[in-house]
Amino acid sequence: MKSVVVLGPQVYQPFVGEEVQRQQLTGRIAMVTAGWQEDEPDDSALAEALAVPSVNLRLYARWEEVISRDTELMEAHRRRQDQLVELQALYQMRLRPAMKVARQLLASRGPAEVLDPERENAIDAIRRLDAHHLARVIELRREFDERYQPHERPAVFEQRAEVARILAKCQTVAIAGGHIVVLLNRLRMLLPMPALSKLNIIAWSAGAMALSERVVLFHDHPAQGVGDAELLDSGLGLIREAVLLPHARGRLKLKQAKRVSLMARRFAPALCYTLDGGDRLEIGADDRPSSSARVLSESGVVETRP
């Protein structure tokens, strides 16, 4: 892998073109817009912003072609997704009270020597629940992969081979945001990692989240409920010890110190990076963020790390 850079959202003011210029990337760029789902082909604005030759890998459309050919895989994949949804609901059922208790303890007043160990223990209980859930999700996916060997099935194999051929002629992959589950599934299924490893990567929003070790869903004011951040799955693991939070200003109550602190402590030792418009984060050779960035601190504020 040559370089990995993640950016803030490109929705309102796209600046991915500046990143291409900054890195002096002149070679062809493979675009991944599968997270846009049915809007995957509407990539003209992105192609224009990149300002170098580009090609869309069409991962969303390719998967549609796969499941129209391989109905057994489609059915099995559907069953697996149903299981994952059910598992997520069970996790949420347990997460909700655990988060409530942790929030209550953080808001409680009293002597620190009494409260602090209780707070830490409550947050640790959430960490253990997160870890348990992640392990179950990974196990479920592993079972699916072992049983159905999706990469070896002709319909998938052929698409992956074609994607690999396209990538061989590219210098960079640009992974856009969108629906994180859809994007992650398409990347896992259709993007050959060996081919990816030879390319520069620029990713943003859900695209950035998909590259990390753990994908965390978050929204502090959703249409329903209190909006407890939840673990979804592991990502592609190209970025380590980092929880990436695109649109943090819009989706998180960053001025509520206790919420910020809880999130920072829950995911420690990983750091929670906010990625808003204009933000940029370089990933070093050790797969960890290496440039200056804003992170959630355990003290409850957003601070800049040099």
Partner: peptide, 13 residues
Amino acid sequence: SWMFPGPLWMMYE
């Protein structure tokens, strides 16, 4: 939105 929650939670554009 309670009965049929949409994918807002999953969207990061």
